[in-house]
């Protein structure tokens, strides 16, 4: 049982929760995630740890409402408890001083990107971050990213904020301008696919943090499997970060859609049951 310490909405569908989980707060590193489950009948879902406070023994989760579980979570309030949280899971990001790092976050992917940007900045790198969202309202954590980046470029699909265009435009602008030693991309699969194609064109080493379907999160089931460089890998234990140029994003997108219909029906039923 883990108590919710605070809750804050960033936009209509994205919120941040601070949760009491002292062991996880102590052990977590940038790149790690947790698995949460609510109630006896709930499902297990992975959520990346966006930050932690070891003095308070808390972790931060930033969640986008996309289905039954994230919706249920959004309805919990400060003081309520979450039945099960397990973690920190996955391999931590390998942080080192490489020179200039180009980070790119799409949508809610900005949340898991934040601790990584923070760590690379602390390690003495020049960090340039491109944040992309459909519109201004969906852009999250801009201030925190700014605090930890040397430069921030904002891209929106509709031009309601920053520059109008896709994340790849922003990235390419930077790449053409200066030498990039490492790129890190986190966001929807389709965004990562094209961001990876962009950096590949310029031969820039690129890491992508993947968010697949998971059950246990400990390597026990293979629900999270994907193909990297022609080999099957388990995202929960071998990842979540992989060489973006080796990842088969098309297969990943196909696998992400495995329960799309079931999920849509379940979500409708869930919403209907509340009204």
């Amino acid at each position: 049982m883990n108590k919710i310490i605070s809750k804050e909405f960033f936009s209509e569908n994205v919120f941040k929760m601070v949760i009491h989980a002292p062991d996880i707060a102590q052990s977590r590193k940038p790149g790690n995630f947790v698995i949460i489950k609510m109630g006896k009948k709930g499902e297990r879902i992975p959520l990346t740890i966006a930050g932690a406070n070891t003095d308070e023994g808390t972790i931060d989760l930033v969640v986008q409402i996309v289905g039954v579980t994230s919706h249920k979570l959004s309805k919990l309030n400060v003081g309520d408890t979450i039945t099960d949280i397990a973690g920190p899971l996955g391999e931590a990001t390998h942080i080192e001083k490489v020179g200039t790092v180009l980070a790119a976050g799409g949508g809610v992917g900005t949340a898991p990107l934040l601790p990584i940007v923070e760590a690379f900045k602390k390690a003495g790198n020049r960090v340039i971050t491109v944040l992309a969202a459909r519109n201004k309202d969906l852009l999250i954590l801009e201030d925190q990213i700014r605090e930890n980046s040397d430069e921030v470029i904002i891209m929106t699909d509709d031009g309601s904020y920053g520059t109008k265009g896709l994340v790849t435009h922003g990235m390419e602008e930077v790449i053409k301008r200066e030498k990039i030693d490492l790129s890190i991309i986190i966001g929807p699969a389709i965004m990562m696919k094209f961001a990876a194609l962009t950096t590949k064109k310029y031969n820039i080493k690129t890491l992508a943090s993947l968010n697949t379907i998971m059950v246990d999160g400990t390597g026990m089931c293979g629900a999270c499997r994907i193909t990297v460089g022609g080999k099957t890998k388990f995202v929960c234990v071998d990842g979540p970060e992989f060489d973006a140029h080796q990842v088969d994003f098309d297969e990943m997108m196909m696998r992400l859609s495995a329960y799309k219909e079931d999920e849509a029906v379940a979500y409708e039923n869930h919403i209907a049951s509340l009204t």
Binding site: M220, E251, A258
Partner: peptide, 24 residues
């Protein structure tokens, strides 16, 4: 607890599980 796969073509298609995933 780690499932083994056979590493044959098409094994990552949807609808194909490890027994561990199915049973879990």
């Amino acid at each position: 607890g780690l499932p083994r796969f056979m590493n044959i073509p098409g094994e990552n298609f949807n609808g194909i599980f490890s027994s561990n995933e199915f049973l879990t």
